[in-house]
Design a protein around this nucleic acid. Sequence first.
DNA 1: TTACACTTGTGAACGGGAACACGTGCAGCC
DNA 2: GGCTGCACGTGTTCCCGTTCACAAGTGTAA
Lengths: 230, 230
Amino acid sequence: MTNHVTRAGGTSDSRLTQPAYDIDPDDIPDIVIRRLPIYVRTLKGLVESGSRSVSSEELASLIGVTAAQIRRDLSYFGKFGKQGKGYDIEHLSGAIEQILKLDRQWPMVLLGMGRLGHAIASYRGFSRSSFTIAGLFDADPAKVGEKVNDLVIRPMSEVADAMREEGIRVGIIATPRVQAQEAADLLVKGGAEAILNYAPVILRVPEHVTVREIDPVSALQSMTYYIDRD
Amino acid sequence: MTNHVTRAGGTSDSRLTQPAYDIDPDDIPDIVIRRLPIYVRTLKGLVESGSRSVSSEELASLIGVTAAQIRRDLSYFGKFGKQGKGYDIEHLSGAIEQILKLDRQWPMVLLGMGRLGHAIASYRGFSRSSFTIAGLFDADPAKVGEKVNDLVIRPMSEVADAMREEGIRVGIIATPRVQAQEAADLLVKGGAEAILNYAPVILRVPEHVTVREIDPVSALQSMTYYIDRD
DNA sequence: TTACACTTGTGAACGGGAACACGTGCAGCC
DNA sequence: GGCTGCACGTGTTCCCGTTCACAAGTGTAA
């Protein structure tokens, strides 16, 4: 995690071009990075509604944060707005997508093809974004060979090789809890740099690998704390 | 959100009893609350492995946080440990479950019975915890009447009434994006205090309603930022 | 019984992200 | 074309969660 973020070249949008050289990704709080997808999503909604530009104030009220926070967040990456005018929606949206490297397709492997794995494999939300499930894997020989959405389930042992061959660096873990760490190790062996973990375990991975947890049960378990009456 | 947290009565475990009166839930950072389910989960894992007690140090390294943080987190709710000894695993686990109100069953309604809704309805992770899906709802008349795991899909218009009748205060939204706010409004109307939202939208809800987002696409989109090479 | 090793609970210090507040520059209008 | 006002970008302040550090309590062993 020591390279620089916004690559030269890319789009030919010459107005509103930001410098954005010499930004160390490590200097930007992760919390800021996690807000960026929300900004993109909201901006795309605004495009649909036909707007050309937004102020930080409007965007903020749409998202439910403060305008100052949006301005500060964006300032980490450059200058995207015009004083007195606001932000050009399409431009800003594109710029953030570029920052997040969403201006390309990301193939992913999916590990664990039980009920959850099947559901994820069929989930349409991924394909609508920049992500494609390109490989399905399961440790159970009985499941290997089964066809799901034009993909054949392959044996777990082949994950690392498949990732290297196909240049895949994003993995999804949907195995049972006890096999999740093992799955993570395989992903790391295959060169994974990003892991989406649906198993309720804290994974041990090297420094350079990012992990995000999807944990609906924890989410529910923390919400009940706030429920008032019995 | 102005009542007090740890109710009197409950378990009869008289050793290691903490005071815990006069704790205002609002005074405790939400981030702390969100860590508690992880503590419980880890403690339960330790029970299985046969241990009797843990130190904050051990627990911390298991979870991947600092020992000081665990001690501080727990201190918001009372005194659960013994100096020189650590924490009694079973007791601490039970105490946190009580704090989170996991010492009972929470029935939930599930709104939106598309692919995602079906997957959630069949998800075993909920039933293994303190949560049960008690009602399925969809706006599409064609889906109404369909039976899924012993439950019949009911029309969306009946949500609020059903919740009040059955005393349900937790809802899951699995509708398409554009119907999610509408679904949230119905849940609020039915008296929901906790909403688990799988739709990629920011929901507008009254102050006293807690919402947690499950958003795998955002998670992926923020991770690609950190991926190094092309 | 005393000494010692261990670990908690918490006051105090620290650090980092959020919010404030304003100088600056662009836009639009008379 | 000059003037007015709006909204960005950012130096500064503030706040809150995290970490430090240690006094005090507990168990063990000689």
